[in-house]
Simulated assay, not measured.
Amino acid sequence: MEKNLIGLNKTETKALTDELNKLLADYQVLYMNVRGYHWNIKGRDFFELHAKFEEMYTDLVVKVDELAERILTLGSQPVHGYSKYLALSDISETLDVTEGTAAIKHVLAAYQTLLVKQRQILTTASELGDEGTVGLLSDYISQQEKETWMLNAYLQ
């Protein structure tokens, strides 16, 4: 069994990084969606949501970088290019969203997609003994579960 630089099975790790690349694509599409919400939001909640979306896209761009670096650490190459992201992502591009409730509903739907996918990848990583990926995704899941609760409370 051939090992990568950090001592994990190369073949099994390749399958994991393929899934991480799909997750990276999801994050890139969500990042651009949230960036668009930040730019285009209108209405009486403008100031509050404009700031919230900036907080979100700042967090998302950090996660994009962390995922890409994790893929490199595991011995693979992160995908790049928006055509590839759109082809791989399970999160759809949303355009011209200007209304706050609609934007938040899009974010919540994206979080549901991310949470399901991240739990599946976390299980795979755990089975491979890949504690680095487990820790990374565990932190993402915890943060997004709380954010989901808060965004749902905002919509009430």
Rank of each mutant, 00 (worst) to 15 (best):
L151W: 11
I121D: 04
K63R: 14
H80A: 09
F47Q: 03
S126R: 02
A110F: 06
E55S: 08
D139S: 13
L72D: 04
M150D: 08
K10G: 03
T73A: 14
D96P: 05
G129R: 08
D139T: 14
Y57I: 05
L49M: 05
V61A: 02
L122T: 14
E99V: 06
E145C: 14
L122H: 15
E48M: 08
T98K: 11
G36P: 01
I104N: 05
E147T: 15
A125W: 01
H106Q: 09
L115S: 09
E19K: 13
L74R: 04
M1A: 06
F53Q: 03
S83H: 02
I91E: 00
T73H: 09
Y154V: 13
K117R: 15
E99W: 00
E145I: 15
K52T: 03
D45H: 09
L88D: 14
A103V: 03
Y140T: 13
A109M: 08
M32S: 07
S142F: 04
I121V: 15
E12I: 02
G7R: 02
K52N: 14
E127C: 04
E131Y: 07
G135R: 00
T17D: 13
Y37S: 10
N4Q: 10
I71D: 15
R35S: 09
G43L: 06
E147Q: 15
V64I: 12
Y57F: 14
T94S: 11
V116E: 15
L114P: 10
Y31C: 03
E54G: 04
D45W: 05
F53R: 03
D90E: 12
G81S: 01
Y85R: 07
A25M: 03
R119G: 11
K52S: 10
A87K: 02
E48R: 05
N152H: 03
N9S: 14
K84F: 01
